[in-house]
Amino acid sequence: MTEEQQQQWVKEHYQVATKYLAGKGIITDSVTLEDSRYLVPLLALWKLTSTDGKKFWVLCGDLPSDHNLVDVAPNAREALRHFSLKWQMQAENLLQANNEEQNKFADLLISRADGLYQLYNDKSLWG
């Protein structure tokens, strides 16, 4: 990807994150860029503040969009770890339902959770 394409991807995924939160009834006021991280074209992890002052980690990209209050993790690296563990637990619960469609989503969550954990574990990404 060119630099311009990468910038466009980041911009689009910021919009994906804010639209995702809006769908949950949360309107964003600002983004903390220095705490947000992107791995173009795989994922974007945003630290967003809502209009009522609450702060959220919002994950989007080539994976399911998800969010949590920033209290779950002090930084982006730990936020990735949090989402990885959260998705592994959600997948386990879905698999217990023994429903074919839910099993497919559980498999996707497991795959993406493994990928997130590998990123969390890759010290070269975190300086």
Rank of each mutant, 00 (worst) to 15 (best):
W57Y: 10
W87G: 07
T49V: 07
Y117D: 13
K104V: 11
D52I: 13
G23W: 02
A106E: 04
D66V: 04
E4P: 01
G127V: 14
R81P: 01
L43R: 00
T28G: 05
S124D: 14
W126A: 09
M89K: 15
M89F: 13
L42P: 00
S84M: 10
Y20W: 07
K19I: 05
F56S: 02
K55W: 03
D107G: 07
A91R: 03
P64G: 01
T32I: 09
L39G: 01
R77Y: 09
S84Y: 01
A22L: 11
K11E: 14
Q8V: 07
A73Y: 00
A17E: 00
Q15N: 09
K19T: 13
S65D: 07
A79V: 03
L43G: 00
S111N: 09
T18H: 05
M89A: 15
G53K: 15
V16C: 04
I27R: 13
L108V: 06
A44I: 06
Y117W: 09
G23N: 09
R77T: 07
Q102Y: 02
T51P: 01
L85A: 07
L125A: 06
R37W: 06
V16M: 06
K24S: 13
W126Q: 10
D66E: 13
C60E: 06
W46L: 14
K55T: 11
E78G: 02
W46A: 01
F83W: 03
K47C: 08
W9K: 05
K54I: 11
Q5H: 08
A97S: 14
A113P: 03
A17C: 12
Q15S: 11
Q7V: 04
L43S: 00
L94K: 02
Q90I: 12
L95S: 06
E100L: 10
F83G: 00
I110N: 07
G25K: 05
V31M: 14
L59I: 11
K104A: 12
V70D: 00
D35T: 04
G25N: 11
T2R: 08
M89H: 13
Y117A: 05
L109G: 02
V40C: 11
Y117S: 08
L21M: 12
V31I: 15
N121W: 01
C60F: 00
A97M: 15
E34I: 10
P74W: 05
Y14T: 12
L63G: 01
M1I: 04
Y20K: 04
H82G: 01
K104R: 11
A17Q: 05
Y38A: 14
L69T: 12
V72A: 04
N99L: 10
T49K: 15
S124I: 02
D114S: 13
T18A: 07
